[in-house]
């Protein structure tokens, strides 16, 4: 189940650095583990994560097997205008997740 929690710092003005935080529910299976029957558990990590601010891509990340389950990302963007942040990701199993958060910028 693709599912995430987001926090975008409130009360920002144009030109401010805005803290964006996201926590994603994902097993981040490394591909190095075996189940009780000795069979390898297929690797399943978030291979690509993208954040767009309006039409502009502001972050692209590849998370690999070195990232723990339920990854938590924190980054900064520059406030330009009020709008929407769109987050999209895809894992090795091909499952996509996406979520949005509003950003309010005072003039």
């Amino acid at each position: 189940m693709a599912f995430a929690r987001i926090q975008v710092a409130p009360g920002v003005k144009r030109g401010d650095a805005v803290e964006v935080r996201i926590s994603i529910r994902h097993p981040m299976e490394t591909g190095f583990r075996v189940d009780d029957g000795g069979r390898t558990i297929a690797r399943n990590t978030i291979k690509e994560f993208v954040c767009r601010y309006g039409a502009v891509e502001v972050l692209r990340a590849s998370l690999g097997s070195g990232i723990a389950a339920n990854p938590y990302l924190r980054f900064y963007i520059t406030a330009v205008e009020s709008g929407e942040l769109v987050f999209e990701w895809i894992d090795d199993a091909g499952e996509r997740g996406d979520t949005k958060a509003p950003i309010v910028v005072a003039a």
Binding site: M1, S23, R25, A69, N70, Y72
Partner: peptide, 12 residues
């Protein structure tokens, strides 16, 4: 609460 992964379960 945002860094705490347990909150993903709480929200579910």
């Amino acid at each position: 609460d945002l860094m705490n992964p347990g909150m993903l379960w709480v929200e579910r």
